[in-house]
């Protein structure tokens, strides 16, 4: 976790040179996580499928504008996906539906969803579950769903200052949890094995 060596470097180079196989590799490695973020925003598989397709084409077209020095590939990929989904949500028709959704349904959705899914990385989920629910909420809203801090404060009905401090505590805790964790190492090895067996 503490390395600065970019684990995606060869994938990035291949992608920038126009090699399709790199795109397949990206979908393989990050597709489910990106799809998960889009789904959290639009709450519909039908819409999320279309948006994932749109976002992938944007990624393919714009990969040259990604600069490794400005951060990890995944951060950039997530930003493209999040923005694609947010643009969709901001269209008039969608907005009416989105606004009627309460946070409760957001939370219950994500909970029931993680139960219904067969994620191979249950070890990873277990580790993340150690992060208090209130911290997961702010990270879900801001990092995965692209809320502003003010929007998150409104949605969670907590003061803006609390949102700000929760973000910092959440990331600090997350780093501490993930920093040196045997369960996580196990989870990573398991997912590697699964990929190899595939």
């Amino acid at each position: 976790m503490s390395t600065t060596i970019n684990p995606d470097l060869s994938m990035i180079r291949q992608l920038k040179s126009g090699d399709h196989r790199a795109m397949a590799a990206i979908l393989d490695k990050y597709g489910d996580a990106l799809y998960g973020a889009i789904y959290q925003i639009v709450k519909s598989d039908d819409i999320a499928k279309d948006l994932m397709q749109d976002a992938s084409i944007k990624i393919w077209h714009n990969i040259k504008s990604y600069d490794e020095q400005k951060g990890r590939l995944f951060t950039w990929l997530l930003r493209v996906c999040r923005n694609t989904a947010i643009d969709k949500v901001r269209t008039g028709k969608f907005k009416a539906i989105a606004q009627s959704k309460t946070l409760e349904s957001t939370v219950s959705n994500s909970v029931s969803h993680s139960e219904e899914m067969n994620i191979p990385d249950s070890g990873l989920q277990q580790v993340i579950q150690r992060l208090d629910e209130k911290y997961q909420q702010v990270i879900n809203l801001i990092y995965l769903q692209g809320f502003t801090q003010a929007e998150a404060a409104k949605e969670l009905d907590i003061p803006l200052g609390t949102v700000k401090s929760r973000i910092k505590i959440a990331i600090r805790e997350l780093r501490a949890i993930l920093g040196d964790n045997p369960l996580l190492i196990l989870a990573v090895i398991t997912s590697l094995l699964i990929v190899l067996i595939k």
Binding site: A37, D121, L124, I128
Partner: peptide, 14 residues
């Protein structure tokens, strides 16, 4: 990396 791992934990199979 910490946040990306978090995102992975919230993944949904395509």
């Amino acid at each position: 990396d910490a946040l990306a791992t978090y995102a992975q934990s919230k993944a949904r199979p395509m």
